[in-house]
Simulated assay, not measured.
Amino acid sequence: MSDYLKSYVIPIKIENVDEYYSLIQEISFSDTNRTFAENLSHSAHINLLIKEISILLANSLRLYEMGYFDNAYYSLRSANELATVMLDLSDKDDSKITNNFKKFRKGKYKKRRSKIINELSKEGIFFKEVIDQMPNFKEDIRVLLKEINNVVHNNGLDKFYCFRYHSLDKDLPYKKLEEFTNHLLKSIRILAIMRLIVDPLPLLITDDEIYYRCPQIILFPFSDKMLSVIGQKSIDEFKQTDTYKSMEEWILSFEKRNIAVNDFLMHNFIDLDKIDDIYSQKHLISGNELKILDVCCCTNKIIYIVYGNGFYRFSTSSKCDNHIYNSLNIDELIKINDNHNICRDNVYVSVMNIKGNNRIDLYNNSYNIIYLFHEEKLDDDEIKCIEKIVMDFSII
């Protein structure tokens, strides 16, 4: 970049930038498992939009730090507009959702944000109810997009690069930074609420009574920081919607898990000192998951269990470094003649095949191989105990 251009594109440090990225990451991790239009694949598309919205927010933050503040606002506007598209692809009756998805996948979806908001205000299944309970939400969206567009369309001298860094007001860049972070937080707030309209689980599971009853999901509750950004008034209003209350009532009908069972089912963590607590609610645990517990009862040496080509992973309360699986080379282990007590990266690995399939089948059926990582060598009795349990696994 020439010195001439450097005088206009000037990086600026954003204090507490990691906090902003952390909030954006929360939205990124808030995948939905909801079925749309009787089609589970639609939720994968919605999750893709959630990820894209998060990337646009992160891009906006990074671009502003680099000094490209107008491009930062383009990204911020795109995030808000894509969030309204996300609602239009999820908050209609089944036939309209299916039709919108077909157009979107083919690149023929051309609705403007204002039209979507107006339609959802009248026809939205969840959005209409939310704006009835949160009367300021629709206006908040309108005002934010108006302010963002003022920057995007260079509405005023203070929106120019050549003015911002060369005006008599030397504090102007920092005033504009404060304005940007305010717009960013407003966007995060609005997008978080839009995410809750898709399904309210990230808010619901902030309540322990809900969280310890919620069916197994790969989802995290919104943090206290995110709840603060959304605002207590908005949270209280959202909780009055039928969408929230009906799901809350449904989840409260389930049995509450104890902490040890919850850690096992939700975090794949086995507290070896609380095995009895886990077995006390074994009716909440699937067959193969119970077999994993049975394997751990054969020995206290196991620190990590992996099967299903790495899709299923369980750590124990013994010392466990997550890097051990990352260094695992399945092809290399298959070539080893000895199935048990293979020394690798200061731990031992034992390889077992579900239903006792022979080693010729290992390569072709690697999805049904179980890898046991342990701190010490397993003795013959422990191996026999484990092999007997593995024989009863259900083939995936």
Rank of each mutant, 00 (worst) to 15 (best):
L185P: 00
S234G: 02
L63A: 15
I190S: 02
I12V: 10
D169P: 00
E332R: 14
N353R: 10
R359H: 04
Y348C: 07
I116P: 00
Y325A: 09
I55M: 04
I275C: 13
T206H: 15
N118M: 02
P202L: 14
I324E: 05
V198E: 01
Y279C: 10
D31R: 11
F160G: 00
D169N: 13
N47F: 14
H45V: 13
V151R: 07
F180D: 03
K384N: 05
E15C: 02
R62W: 11
F373P: 01
G156C: 11
F222R: 13
Y307N: 14
H166Y: 08
H323L: 07
I27N: 14
I369N: 02
K186D: 04
K6G: 13
I370A: 04
Y161S: 11
K225C: 10
E123W: 00
D199E: 14
K103T: 01
I302Y: 11
I395A: 15
F264C: 14
K186Y: 07
I370Q: 05
I292A: 01
V306T: 14
I292Q: 09
C296E: 05
S246H: 04
K103L: 14
S253V: 08
D169G: 00
D345N: 15
N39A: 12
L49E: 08
F311D: 13
I354L: 13
E38K: 03
L89G: 08
A192I: 10
C214V: 07
V85T: 06
A79E: 13
D88M: 02
N329K: 11
P200K: 04
I278R: 10
V347C: 09
K108Q: 12
N71H: 12
I275R: 09
L145D: 02
E119P: 06
L372W: 03
I210R: 02
E65R: 11
T32W: 11
E15N: 00
Y367P: 00
N150V: 00
E81W: 06
I370W: 09
I148N: 06
L172S: 14
F264K: 03
M391Q: 10
N150F: 03
D140A: 07
L252P: 06
T84R: 00
L265M: 08
L333R: 06
M226S: 09
L76H: 15
I383W: 01
Q281V: 10
D345S: 12
I193Y: 02
C320H: 10
N182G: 07
L272S: 14
N150C: 09
N353C: 09
N357I: 14
D321S: 10
K159G: 05
L177E: 12
L372E: 05
N358L: 05
Y64K: 11
G156Q: 07
N341A: 05
S223E: 10
D18N: 15
R112L: 11
H45D: 07
K176R: 06
M66R: 12
Y307E: 01
D18H: 05
S28Y: 13
K175P: 05
D207N: 15
M134K: 02
E255W: 01
N268P: 00
E332H: 15
H153D: 09
L82N: 03
K239L: 04
H153M: 05
C296P: 04
D169S: 03
I50D: 03
F180N: 01
N337R: 15
F69R: 01
V130N: 04
H374W: 11
R105H: 09
I302F: 12
S121K: 04
D207Y: 12
H283M: 02
Y371D: 02
R195W: 09
G124E: 01
I275D: 03
